[in-house]
């Protein structure tokens, strides 16, 4: 089995989901900067930024874990 293959709910799917969520939050922040009725709520921008950091942190953890798994699988394949 190719070591890059995995089931749909695996690490790659979670990382892609995290990046999509970060993209969504970033787009919302951009819109909030430009929309007239949203400029009065600066704390929302801060909250959105914290959420981006939180989701990026989670995605980074998943990515680091996946990297370790790949290295391990690759080493095993080389030995075999």
């Amino acid at each position: 089995m190719n070591i890059l293959e995995e089931h749909p709910g695996g690490d790659y799917a979670r990382m892609a989901e995290g990046i999509t969520q970060i993209m969504t939050l970033a787009c919302v922040m951009r819109d909030m900067f430009t929309a007239e009725n949203l400029r009065d709520r600066p704390w929302d921008l801060v909250n959105l930024l914290y959420m981006i950091i939180d989701i990026a942190d989670r995605s980074t953890d998943v990515g680091a874990c996946k990297k370790s798994k790949l290295f391990e699988a690759h080493s095993r394949a080389m030995i075999e």
């Binding site: 919302v28 909030m32 929309a35 009725n37 949203l38 709520r41 704390w43 929302d44 909250n47 959105l48 914290y50 959420m51």
Partner: peptide, 17 residues
């Protein structure tokens, strides 16, 4: 408390969108 504030922001943004 921080999480509830985040959710408040999310619901506000969802309503706007």
């Amino acid at each position: 408390s921080q999480t509830l504030l985040w959710l408040e922001t999310l619901f506000f943004v969802i309503r706007e969108l």
